[in-house]
Amino acid sequence: MSAGSVQIIVPSNWNALVPTELPKLECEATSVRAALDWLTADYPQFGVRLFSHGRLASWVNIYLGEDDIRSLGGLDTPIESSATLTVIQAVAGG
């Protein structure tokens, strides 16, 4: 399968977890899991905010375009062309 170009949008408060302003987060990936692996390789501090017991944590939702990946194929959802992944905590704001 060919990789798609993925833009990853994370909650704005995650900027407080890194020493400098987050750059635009873009990678090439064949699946949601591969895109998140890329993200957490560069920003390991995001890992606990995304995963629990080896799966997507209950306190976070991820949208591929307009669709919740849990209603698709979860972390194994394929990415075949350019896409946007939006990470939203189960509680946003505050």
Binding site: W59, A90, V91, A92, G94
Partner: peptide
Amino acid sequence: SERFASDPAYSS
């Protein structure tokens, strides 16, 4: 006036 948006299934 603080707002929290929450997944309806979330609890803590």
